[in-house]
Design a protein around this nucleic acid. Structure first.
Lengths: 344, 344
DNA sequence: TTGTAAGCGTTATCAT
DNA sequence: ATGATAACGCTTACAA
């Protein structure tokens, strides 16, 4: 691999001048700059950013930690962040935690060892408090949290409008005439799910409906868990569900179909995360679009702009078949009917 | 940030000894090793891998270049590669090309600048030959290609059994009694698609059916393109399609439904890439599972084991509603009926 | 405008 | 078993 020293030798000058020339410094003669650039190209020189970063004490790598990369929601966030960061000359190092706390800690340590410029993170379900994270990432590395955040951890945060979204989704179910609305609540270790539960409760109470803890099904995230929870929900006399996750909702639909329950006539369902499959199912699933790509962009910008505030990304209700038994819609929340734009 | 020099000073020894102790060298007294380790922990020392890598002239970063990270197929490949590489102490730097040649070249240069240990790549549609790549990545950095590969580029390759898969998928359509089978062929700039077309052709010809170029619809990859191609296919009298991509197949189904064509009674369809949504649609889509996670694992292992051969990952036909108008199945290719395990 | 020299944090090769 | 020293490739005061 050719170095600036090689170029310097070839031109009979010193490495410093080559460095300056290549960096576009004004303190170098036009003629030598041209000569250096020509020689560099000729010799196939490519700057060793590892060495440069060591010297400058900074890197142009941003670490992103997500529970699972193959979740559409997270891969879209990564895509959004990557698009912004690339523009700004950064590259992204990706780590998956597989929802495990140990992996999350390991990933944080790895990224610290690489002296990354920043860490963008959405916490694992298994990660329950911010203590370890505080220890690992100190004042040195900015940490930007998204989606699943710890409020007590300083630094920028990008979250969905969880409470609002859940509120409107549940309100929508109420307006459709469903009477006994349960919820697949997810994991209470994560604030995002706590907020969604709060929104659900608020909608019920402001409509004069009772909040019944026996209709709240906890620890529901993946398809199987949704299936099992729907079984209990039906046994408890539910006629609708607000699900705080798309895959649990999918599992719920699995069970309801199996049990011969008609959707939306006898049972309504709305869930978060407008995953591509939701619009393709029969019945198509009503969802809350969380705009993951925009969340990723916002998180990246929060780092670039050195922000420390909390940004809330609005959710958008997509009303589809699974919750629409009354045709006429009069509803305050902005929405697209039967949105089907995915992968167009 | 605390360095080995800090630790050395604190213990009244030299950095070399600290380095050796931390590296677990046998040429250091047990007692000092313990002391160093204790001090390092106490001071919160974390090794600067950037400096270490510079000195050792190698990095533990593997670059992965994919067209689009949010495609389930590619994010699963990344997941597979990541799982293997993490085990071996490597981290992954991810770049998206968005199917553009320029981005691909830029990504390769970036990864070379980082002196990554290897590059795993699946080429952009816009990238049509291996010339530029050969120039950028020389003998220095091993390059492992997967899915979309250039045969003339040296190094390990991991590909799907494109020809076989397309052959069996098309044969299946023939066995189901479809007579005029077209194909959404994808882009001929990519070998994977060329091979699929060959498999399709082989199946037709070995069944004594004519290969008709007017039933081959090129440049079909995304949903819209599939929609438009299906329009032409129907106009050309097709009664079935083998699609070399899942999203183009989705678009085709969009159109066929709109046109009131019954699937699978009047029209059969099979596609590659067993994306999650395919089993959830109505009708559910028959697909060729390409085992992307395993492809990613294989690519990572190919690097770790320093291989230079081409591995072929078999495809598996999942027969679902979109192609099954004859109930009884007698078919040589291993398959799962109505597989519905996704996100369970 | 250019050269000199030091240093980023680590590891490797000598000595001792 | 440990220390001294140099080097990885680059940047940057400071000096010339």
């Amino acid at each position: 691999m050719v170095t600036i020293t090689d170029i310097a030798r070839a031109l009979g000058i010193t490495p410093s001048t080559v460095s300056r020339a290549l960096a576009g410094s004004p303190r170098v003669k036009e003629k030598t700059r041209i000569a250096v650039e020509r020689k560099a190209l000729e010799m196939g020189y490519e700057r060793n950013v590892v060495a440069a970063n060591l010297r400058k004490g900074q890197s142009h790598i941003v670490g992103i930690i997500v529970p699972r990369i193959h979740r559409e929601f997270f891969s879209n966030i990564i895509g959004g962040a990557e698009s912004v960061l690339n523009q700004a000359g950064y590259n992204v190092l990706i780590c998956q935690t597989m929802e495990s706390k140990d992996s999350e800690i390991k990933a944080l340590k790895t990224l610290r060892n690489y002296r990354v410029a920043a860490v963008l993170i959405s916490h694992a379900i298994g990660s329950t408090d911010s203590r370890d994270i505080k220890e690992i990432i100190g004042k040195d590395i900015p940490i930007i949290q998204f989606d699943r955040v710890y409020p007590d951890l300083p630094g920028a945060k990008v979250v969905g409008a969880n409470c609002d979204g859940a509120y409107f989704a549940t309100k929508h179910l109420i307006q459709q005439g469903y009477k006994r609305i349960g919820t697949l609540a997810g994991y209470m270790s994560s604030l995002a799910f706590v907020e969604r539960l709060a929104g659900y409760r608020l909608a019920l109470e402001s409509a004069g409906l009772p909040y019944d803890n026996s209709l709240v099904f906890y620890d529901t995230l993946v398809r199987d868990q949704g299936y099992e929870a729907a079984k209990k929900a039906l046994a408890s006399g539910c006629d609708a569900l607000f699900s705080a996750g798309a895959f649990s909702a999918l599992g719920a639909v699995d069970y309801l179909k199996e049990a011969g329950v008609r959707i939306p006539e006898d049972f309504g369902i709305v869930c978060t995360s407008n995953e591509g499959f939701t619009s393709l199912m029969t019945p198509s699933l009503s969802t809350l679009e969380q705009h993951p790509f925009e969340m990723g962009q916002a998180a990246a910008k929060a780092f670039l702009e050195n922000r420390a505030d909390t940004q809330v990304i609005p959710m958008e209700l997509h009303i589809r078949q699974s919750s629409q038994r009354i045709q006429q819609e009069e509803f305050s929340c902005n929405h697209l009917l039967n949105n089907n734009q995915w992968q167009k």
